[in-house]
Design a binder for these strands. Structure first.
Lengths: 213, 213, 213, 213
DNA sequence: AATGAATGAGTCTTCATTCAT
DNA sequence: GATGAATGAAGACTCATTCAT
């Protein structure tokens, strides 16, 4: 777990561009020339700054992982809410997370499909572990207070939470077409799917976790 | 919509190998040499049989699309079941479909992320449209019989159905680790996740669709 | 100098197609697949009938060479004309020859540029030798009769005769453009350049060979 | 009409080698491997420097075109010669041009046969247009001074000038054989054909253009 | 610290030919 | 005699990386 140098402005630009391109065309489908060109830097810079294309990906994951876990722990710590509201908060946090960092999450989907036992694979595993333990704790808390049903399959609930949100951003183009939203501007569409996901997933979780009809 | 030649035994072998490799390493990450080597055919055969690597992918989609839609229509047509049982049947069909054709579904996830407006993109769109209209019809039927709640967001239910199942096969490696199942043999593990998905998704759909507690 | 089998109808079709394609795209620029496709025969036929692509070219030269020399000797033998008229006859014969077999003559130009010491190179050399000796004899005859000037450089006159005609068919596209003839139909254009070449070359030869002003 | 970067020493070496090889074996008959090998550079350099094999050809034409037109305009501008002497000067310029850049002119012959409407085709057209307008002007001048005959077909005279010279360099191997010059060293042979062409073409032009016997 | 030039290994595809029938 | 299937070799080109400066 080596300590990172803080990234220079150019390095961040490279990572940002890579994120978009890796999301759109995949890691292998993106050439360092593409990246260098779009980030307006010399081709040699990628190797020079990150060592290799692979290491660039790792640097990207390192950066995002830090961001995600940092924020995640903050969200729930200092709240004094009912268990279901905490769950709602968590759901909204995830949705927000995924939609705001679509590019990165698409890359994560791709990488978890590949299932490589690489540095990146480990980074993903770590994120998932943190997520799962956090939500498990949350549900246990609700069960202790007798407001959540017993025998909740937390892993499967995670699957549904992450899976549904990922599916939404992955298939958003198809969603637009199926629901006649092809001409809606991106910003508006983003707000729409955020709302849709939020309502739908909260509804789902409430129905499965609580006793209320 | 040109009628295809029936595929030769070698062509099928090539497609099968490609399916696995594209799923594992992505389309761009897989070389025709890899494919040729693992399928034990000459490299030139891929171009010879399919015209190009891209067209091979298309042939793969054509084959699977035909399989899926063929089977799907059969599943529900001649059944005289209660609406919820039909939904259950559909859920099990999807799960079975996705688990049995993991490789292909992983490729579909990858391709829908890319969101290209290609032949393959259109094939995916068509599959999704068929799926969506089928399940919509099913839910409408239940609503007419007053056994399903009104105001069901079918698109979002699809998202959850497909998303959860895709997430399971995509993240199965992580699922194993998180649930201490790393040493379970593949066949057994496959049966396990099939069961898990079935129970979980039926539970979810029942809770959201019906009035029962 | 092996005796040829008479060519089958299919073989002739192949040669004819090849002639056009070799002229347009060059020998190397034309694939046997192109030929087979346009001649509507199986790809394997080229190797099967001719042995190889190279041998096909040789067969083509063999066929044309025979045609040319056969006709050439006929043209002048049984004529009782004045020397200058014989020269005119020869000029018209060449022009006709080159324009009517443009494709083949373009190939000859290409091949003589390459200057390979191949079977084809030898065929070209043979044609040239026949041509040269024939015209030399003709001019000698005129000189003996004192109607042609002495000290005529026959080789250079050949250069001009062949060179000018070849240049015309090679650069005909440019000729059309330079002379605003882009929309003239092919047949009409062909007649035009035939006339132009005839007048021009006869004029040239007369001026150089004879004493008349 | 974009301004070119000045070519590096290596680029020039590549172009020079290509010129020879394209002349000998044709564009399609020459592989980038051949070029790279003979120019003693890495194969990737061709794409790196020129973008593609095709673009290399274009670069070659751009270079030579510039050379030719530059020199051509210089030749006649500041001269105060009799019209026939100007024509002689022009003839010698062309001959010199063609013999000194044999490789390039062979390629031009090949390309003009192909008659493609490519960048290269346009470059050829442009060269021809410049040539034609220049010589037309020259002849008009002579006609105005009543030293040249009226009704001269300039296009055809160009055909003969260019055609004869091209034929000479294209068929030089055959010329050697036909005139028993196979063992003459290249430099001596070059001077010989230069002289032959000069005398012959001047003779031709004088006979056709002027009133002198 | 940063970069333009350069490269060997690799990409997909097409080639002319051969083989089994 | 004829052909569809198949192939090894070669095609042009792009890749991520390194090197000299």
């Amino acid at each position: 777990m080596e300590k990172q140098e803080p990234l220079s402005e150019k390095q961040i630009r490279i990572i940002d561009v890579s994120e978009r391109l890796f999301a759109e065309k995949g890691f292998e489908g993106t050439s360092v020339r593409d990246i260098a060109h779009e980030a307006d830097v010399n081709v040699a810079m990628i190797s020079y700054y990150f060592g290799s294309k692979e290491k660039l990906l790792e640097a990207m994951f390192a950066r995002r992982s830090a961001m995600i876990t940092d924020q995640l722990t903050v969200v729930l710590d200092d709240e004094k809410l009912a268990p279901i509201d905490k769950v709602y908060l968590l759901i909204d946090f995830y949705i927000d997370q995924i939609i705001r960092n679509q590019h990165f999450h698409k890359i994560m989907v791709r990488e978890q499909i590949a299932g490589r036992d690489s540095s990146v694979g480990k980074a993903i595993a770590k994120i998932k572990l943190t997520n799962q333990s956090l939500i498990k704790q949350l549900i246990l808390e609700g069960q202790k207070k007798k407001v959540f049903k017993p025998r909740i399959d937390v892993s499967m609930m995670m699957m549904t939470l992450i899976g549904t949100a990922n599916q939404m951003i992955s298939a958003q183009q198809h969603y637009r077409i199926l629901n006649d939203l092809e001409d809606m501007p991106d910003e508006k569409f983003e707000i729409l799917i955020q709302k849709k996901l939020s309502v739908h997933l909260k509804n789902l979780f409430k129905a499965v976790l609580t006793y209320e009809s």
